[in-house]
Amino acid sequence: MAPLLQLKHVVKRFGGLLATNDVSFDVEEGEVVFIIGPNGAGKTTLFNLISGYVTADSGEILYQGQNIVGLKPYQTTRLGIGRTFQIVKPLPSLTVRENVMLGSFLHARSRAEAGKKADEVLGFLGLDRRADQLASGLPLAQRKLLEVARALATGAKLLLLDEVMAGLNPTESAEVVTLLRKLKDFGVTAVGGVEHIMRVVMALASRVVVMDQGGKLAEGSPQAVVHDPRVVEAYLGSKYQKGGAPP
């Protein structure tokens, strides 16, 4: 069976800057893949390319075998690609449930059905107690989860999680990881983006893609990547070695 998502030689330029330089990798169904790279490595651009917020200059992006380059974001969402944003943007004047319903409306025939689907997702992510609260009152960690909930509610099969751990303390990250692990049970394949290789990533990822300056530096299992000399040299070098033993 073909991979769920395939990137083939994807290139994107912004003016003179090569934001994405000939990047190729596959994501199989049921995997949890993390894209790792320092700020500016091109992770967000990669997510924007896949979800249609920017259009690739050349190369192919195949989702379930279909080339999705040139599709608009709402079209990729309808195909089953959900995403969260680095900066979380819930609708502050709506309740948590209503925010999630924005997602579930996509495949619901009625408001009641959308509400049911929203409650299901909220329950799955442990946000059900907050359902009737205004989204503006949520703490950051839960706002991040709300983003995940909204994307899940669209019936996404592939979930793109941009900087899902940023700004969270270790406890909160651990909670998020536990939830992301359960995504597989929900029939969802996740691609996450993070700045640093963290213990949580090592525990969660089935595969890691390392980005640097717009290009793919390395790819493989977390263990293999950590010990890849190029990765250690180019990216992990300073930060990682100072940090001591591998996680």
């Binding site: 608009k72 709402y74 969402t77 959900g82 924005l102 997602g103 909204r150 994307a151 509610a153």
Partner: peptide, 9 residues
Amino acid sequence: DTAMAVGIN
């Protein structure tokens, strides 16, 4: 942008 992410045109 958020609107498009939930499938809204």
